[in-house]
Design a binder for these strands. Structure first.
Lengths: 218, 218
DNA sequence: CGATTTCCTGACTTTCAAATCAGAAAATGC
DNA sequence: GCATTTTCTGATTTGAAAGTCAGGAAATCG
């Protein structure tokens, strides 16, 4: 049964096969998100996963299907974020927003593929972006925009267009993480260094987000 | 044959040949920066430029050479930025930095290809990124980092790692511009709208950069 | 155990884009 | 005008990656 049925174990003897499919998706996610859809070849993905190239076609019909399956693995990441945020639904909008930003940074360091995919496909447009908006990004972004809107209405945040603010905060937060190769090539800075990461997070939280807050509330 | 309509060049003398090559580079820059090197095909570029695919190989040896030639067209953009900044070399570091940010936004709206290229190749790494750092990005980024360093030493800016701040400000400033297709797909927002652009620029300048400045200087 | 299904691979075919080439068209020079 | 060079194109070749397939290995089941 080569239907490429998402990581969830189907019970019975899916032990080995499911793991192989998962390894393939992991390798695919890494390469797709770093290089983009066309630049990442099935040969590379197969090699990274330690399987034959033909095996990719056993588990997934074609390259597009593999791409979608790999992207769906990120749904768990988004869901976890949502779960944690809902636990704080009672706090002020600004507090929730700060928490969302912290979560976003944490997730971006742990799963850099998500931010890279947004950047890659968000610039290119087309069918894959539409698919991502439908299946992964749309609800999350709209929810965050509502949160920003609420913070503005509560007078806690300067009045900028919520959609633009959401996207810009994400771009600012994920920028350095996405641009790890540039940091290395241009400055010799290693973003794997915990000191770099901490400096980055406090820069985003203290400085950037701080600048958006209404002075009277600071 | 095809539709050789483009024949009549308005320019005189050596106008035609140079103009054709320039049109090819323009089309190449747009497509390379939006889609990335491999996703952009020579066929598309040729069609966008209104010439045959073989013509691309007449003016440029191969796809790589065309890519580099298209990138070099951006040197003029960088040089212009540098020229304007040098005119204000006497102002305080913070003033220069604000000016640099304004310039960066203006340039990013006018030449969105530059920001997209940084994002695309800066994420992927590899030979093309190294080439870009050597020929286009390196000096500019290091100069900006020095400016930030000076502003910090003058006590005008909070003390964050200059390289990280430079990259993050660029990511924040170009984020929405790069992600124009995402803004359209996810929110139906058209970044061509002047109102959107103005709101974005003031958001970046007032809020984000404002947040980085030392309170005592505000 | 043998039978059956699931999983996986090497070898092959197809497809598509990059690169080449011979020569036509247009510009330039005499 | 004719000759020469430059510019450009259609047709073709080349190469690399996607996709197919027959069958082998391994797990599962009676």
């Amino acid at each position: 049964m080569a239907d490429g049925s998402l990581g969830v174990s189907t019970g019975k003897g899916a032990g080995k096969g499911g793991r192989t499919a998962a390894r393939i998706r992991e390798a695919a996610l890494e390469l797709f998100s770093r290089l983009g859809f066309e630049r990442a070849t099935l040969g590379e993905i197969a090699a990274a996963a330690g399987v034959s190239q033909a095996n990719l076609h056993y588990h997934y019909q074609d390259k597009d299907a593999l791409w979608r399956a790999a992207m769906l693995d990120l749904r768990g990441v988004i869901a976890e974020e949502e779960r944690l945020l809902e636990a704080a639904a009672d706090a002020s909008a600004l507090t929730q927003l700060r928490m969302a930003m912290r979560l976003f940074l944490k997730i971006s360091w742990k799963h850099p593929a998500l931010g890279r995919i947004v950047a890659l496909e968000g610039m290119a447009g087309g069918e894959r972006l539409d698919w991502l908006v439908d299946h992964l990004l749309g609800p999350r972004n709209r929810r965050l925009a509502q949160l920003v809107q609420a913070a503005i209405e509560a007078g806690e945040l300067k009045a900028f267009p919520p959609e633009q603010l959401v996207i810009t905060l994400q771009a600012a937060g994920a920028g350095l993480i996405n641009l790890t190769p540039l940091m290395a090539a241009n400055f010799g800075v290693d973003t794997g260094d915990p000191a770099v990461r901490e400096a980055h997070d406090s820069m985003i939280l203290d400085a950037l987000l701080g600048g958006l807050v209404n002075d009277k509330k600071r």
